[in-house]
């Protein structure tokens, strides 16, 4: 459905995308995951026909995004990272505006947006600028969907939205799969990766890995442990200097570590060393890696 081949894009000296390529199949909920400045927005804007790639090509539904931009614009829904609806128009007026511009009506595609729009419909007379972050998100999604696009391009839709609204938003995206709409969504939140069918991890313009979240987690090399102690700062310092520690990263109240030598004797040696160094209440437990752990490992 969406094919991206060897796309590069630079802004002056900064190379935002380096030979990026992957494919998204029809009806898939695809996540583009990476930190700020990784090149996510550039890629999304190329797909949305807003910027031209320096080299490489991309197509949506077999149509080239550069040559066939007119077809693409008629058949995709795009939601920019920044709220881009008219703040001085009411919710309903915004929706109506975008519906008519795509030559359709709210009524015609109401069934498609109903699960989303019905939640905010009681406030339809309210100006878009006066909506809460979560409501703005829902309105923007409704506007992007109103012409029944084949593909949805959502650029960081959950950035700056509260946790409850984020969960709700992902529920809505899952719901849309019923209509066979291909969705590519970018996000800096690693924990949202698990909600996608497949994800691409992106960093500094490079795609690190493209796979299902489960496969990415399964491909984690080594066994991961979570460890904590009373003085987490000192614990971090000690572990990072230790010769038998492959990697050590802070993760909430725990440190995630991988031993070079995973045998229980070698682990005991490390723990003894920590106790000798005055660490108290040490807790160690084996854990399953998450996407962020994988991401960090891929970066090394």
């Amino acid at each position: 459905m969406i094919t991206i081949t060897n796309i590069s894009k630079s802004y002056g000296k900064v190379q935002a995308l380096k030979n990026v390529g992957f494919e998204v199949s029809r009806g898939e909920l695809f996540g583009l995951i990476g930190p700020d400045g990784a090149g996510k927005t550039s890629l999304m804007r190329i797909l949305a026909t807003l910027i031209l790639p320096d080299s490489g090509s991309a197509s949506i539904a077999g149509r080239d995004v550069v040559k066939d931009y007119r077809y693409i614009r008629n058949n995709i829904g795009y939601m920019p990272g920044r709220f881009s609806l008219y703040q001085d128009l009411s919710m309903e007026e915004n929706l109506q505006f975008f519906a008519t511009i795509f030559g359709t009506t709210i009524k015609e595609n109401y069934e498609l947006i109903k699960p989303i729009y019905s939640q905010i419909e009681p406030f339809k007379k309210r100006k878009a600028g006066a909506l809460s972050g979560g409501m703005k998100q829902k309105l923007a999604l409704s506007c992007a969907l109103i012409h029944r696009p084949e593909a949805l391009i959502l650029d960081e839709p959950t950035t700056g939205v509260d946790a409850v609204s984020r969960t709700e938003f992902w529920e809505m995206l899952k719901e849309l799969k019923r209509y066979d709409i291909t969705i590519i969504v970018s996000t800096p939140y690693m924990d949202e990766a698990g909600l996608c069918d497949r994800v691409a991890l992106i960093q500094s313009g490079n795609i690190l890995q493209v796979d299902t979240p489960q496969n990415i987690v399964n491909s984690y090399k080594g066994k991961l442990y979570a460890i904590k102690a009373q003085d987490i700062y000192q614990l971090n310092n000690l572990l990072r200097q230790h010769t038998n520690i492959e990697s050590c990263f802070t993760f909430g109240e725990f440190l995630h570590i991988v031993f070079k030598n995973d045998s229980s004797e070698q682990q005991a040696i490390v723990l003894d060393y920590l106790e000798n160094q005055g660490m108290k209440n040490i807790v160690v437990q084996p854990i399953n890696p998450n996407i962020e752990d994988c991401f960090i490992q891929l970066l090394q």
Binding site: A48, T49, L50, R70, R73, N74, I76, Y78, P80, R82, F83, S84, L85, Y86, Q87, F98, I101, F102, G103, C143
Partner: peptide, 12 residues
């Protein structure tokens, strides 16, 4: 305001 982004991806 950024509304042009949304306009630019429409068939207008």
């Amino acid at each position: 305001i950024g509304t042009i982004e949304q306009i630019n991806v429409t068939p207008i």
